[in-house]
């Protein structure tokens, strides 16, 4: 019985545009303690990544790409996390690596969202032959062992920050496209779209109406794409095909530390813990947004 009540509560319809919508959404977001924890963690990580390297350089002499200490030097006042095998300050590199990870995650999300919207809206709006063609293509991409393709593309095109983002984005848009197509198919049949049509809106105008109504879905899947982007980038950099030295990346820091793992095991711990915390925070926030923006999807 309790379970039934819980479902009824979950399915309470959201009245769009009502004055309390924003507060209602915040309440739903905050109802899950994990979302709040995620938001706080993410906030700290973003501040550290954005301001950290500058503050470190200005006030604490932390240089990420200068050989400022001995190889594998232990933690000290000047170098709180010690030094990497080449003698560079680990804290400074962790902060810069965070910047890269978050930037890659965000830009991958932008990339997948743009591609997903393009395919999903076209497919869902046009329907018919174009729809089946695009969806077969999407399904095929979904069934491909994309990580192989990511690896191969990174090696053939040459590893770089830009290539990393584009390659991951181009292989991760399918879920977004399918979700948006599904939403679009449902919205296309709504009365307000019919109203827009009879009142003489152009195709572009109607597309705009549809677009505004899929925003919640887009936000939720984009958040999850940030997490996928960060994880894929770290794996790619770990394998040596992502971010290239001297740029700092948590993934490449781990592969550098791996050879010295028995001398300085903590060096293999910091970047890993940071990747986990970042991805975890993003996933918690994503789940909270899902509950706040799209009650039908909550708990899935």
């Amino acid at each position: 019985m309790v379970a039934i009540l819980a479902t009824v509560d979950r399915a309470t319809p959201l009245i769009r545009g009502a004055p309390s919508t924003r507060r209602w959404r915040w309440r739903r977001f905050a109802a899950n303690r994990l979302s709040l924890i995620g938001l706080a963690m993410l906030g700290i990580l973003v501040v550290a990544a954005v301001a950290g390297p500058g503050v470190g350089r200005r006030f604490f002499d932390l240089e990420a790409n200068t050989l400022s200490c001995l190889s594998l030097e232990g933690p000290s006042r000047a170098h709180p996390f010690g030094c990497d095998p080449l003698g560079r300050d680990i804290l400074a590199r962790l902060l810069l690596g965070g910047r890269i990870s978050l930037a890659v995650g965000l830009l991958v999300a932008v990339c997948t969202t743009v591609l997903g919207l393009l395919v999903g809206l076209t497919s869902g709006y046009l329907g018919g032959f174009a729809d089946s063609l695009l969806m077969r293509f999407t399904d095929t991409m979904l069934a491909m062992p994309t990580f192989f393709i990511v690896l191969a593309a990174a090696a053939f095109l040459g590893p770089s920050l830009f290539n990393t983002i584009v390659i991951i984005g181009v292989t991760q848009w399918m879920v977004t496209a399918r979700l948006i197509r599904g939403e679009c198919l449902a919205i296309r049949e709504k009365e307000y779209i019919l109203a827009a049509r009879v009142s003489g809106h152009s195709n572009v105008g109607i597309m705009r109406h549809i677009l505004l109504n899929v925003v919640s879905t887009v936000i939720v899947v984009a958040t999850l794409a940030v997490a996928t982007g960060i994880l894929t980038e770290s794996a790619l950099s770990y394998l040596g095909l992502g971010i290239q030295p001297p740029q700092a990346s948590w993934g490449s820091m781990l592969s550098g530390a791996q050879n010295y793992i028995f001398v300085e095991p903590m060096q293999g711990v910091y970047p890993g813990v940071l990747i986990v915390l970042t991805v975890l925070a993003v996933n918690f926030v994503g789940e909270g947004l899902r509950e706040a923006l799209d009650p039908r999807l909550a708990g899935r």
């Binding site: 770290s234 394998l239 990747i275 991805v279």
Partner: peptide, 8 residues
């Protein structure tokens, strides 16, 4: 589980 990079 879904947030831990497999290599780490």
């Amino acid at each position: 589980g879904v947030s831990i990079p497999a290599f780490w």
